[in-house]
Nucleic acid binder design. Structure first.
Lengths: 141, 141
DNA sequence: TATTGTTATACTCTATAACTATA
DNA sequence: TATAGTTATAGAGTATAACAATA
């Protein structure tokens, strides 16, 4: 009587693992990893972000963000410059190369997400909305 | 224009993190962690399992399983004994304490999952089924 | 004093390789 | 030889503490 495969924890974990495996494979040709893609996305913002603000949005540590920005900067995808208004902060912005790569990677990631959700048929948007609803409810503790 | 919070990867990750936080909190009074709960569940099987078979079912490494069984055995929740039919193997079975604790922890975990899915309303079973469908589709590569 | 970015360090989780005892 | 369990070790990934520059 093994029911561990029906437990919600198992399902959530393995859905996430499956998604991760797919997205890493799809992004590999662009020379970035899944979490680097997420960092590029958050810095591709109308209002320029400091490293710490970006880290807060992704729920990662600010020291972890240092390593991500290091990696992306060495690939010439982002640039650091001091914020003139507060020179303790770095404003991180995408380079032209970074914007180009992000556009292509986003197309590839969208296609991968479409394939990932394909088994659900036409109402896969409902599934995505359910995930958002759960997270939103949980954020209110 | 930050859309990272709408990406599927963000949603899956944070839904899993929210679930994990909830289940750890709910299981803490029983002195076990979420993954120990999963290990207890898989060993609570009609047919006795070796450590390696259990590890395969949970998709964890056999060396990782050693540590889990060590921890659960030190808590007197499971027992190792050599398989008479093949003495290289350990048959791991729940003690009476282990069965009692698993029953209580399962009730608590069920209640936590109910709360976790509550924001979805009456058709939360559809969400769970969607997760299972995605995983099943992905397992076929 | 407080905060941002940074570095050094430590801790958790997991996997790889090698050992043992059995087969 | 091959396999189950074990141990030692190493590699990610992440977090904590301390420091420099700036506020």
């Amino acid at each position: 009587m093994s029911n561990h495969r029906e437990r919600l924890g198992y399902l959530l974990k393995h859905a996430y693992l499956a998604y991760t495996a797919l997205i890493e494979q799809v992004l590999a040709p662009y020379g970035i990893e899944g979490r680097e893609f997420a960092v590029l996305l958050v810095f591709d913002d109308a209002v320029p972000l400091s490293q710490q603000e970006a880290a807060r949005r992704l729920t990662i540590d600010r020291t972890t963000m240092v390593a991500f920005v290091d990696a992306l900067e060495s690939k010439r995808l982002v640039e650091r410059r001091p914020d003139p208004a507060d020179r303790r902060r770095n404003i991180v912005s995408l380079t032209d190369d970074g914007r180009r790569l992000l556009a292509e990677a986003t197309t590839a990631a969208d296609e991968a997400e479409r394939r990932f959700l394909a088994p659900l048929g036409p109402d896969s948007t409902r599934f995505t909305a359910d995930l958002a609803r759960i997270i939103e409810a949980f954020e209110g503790h």
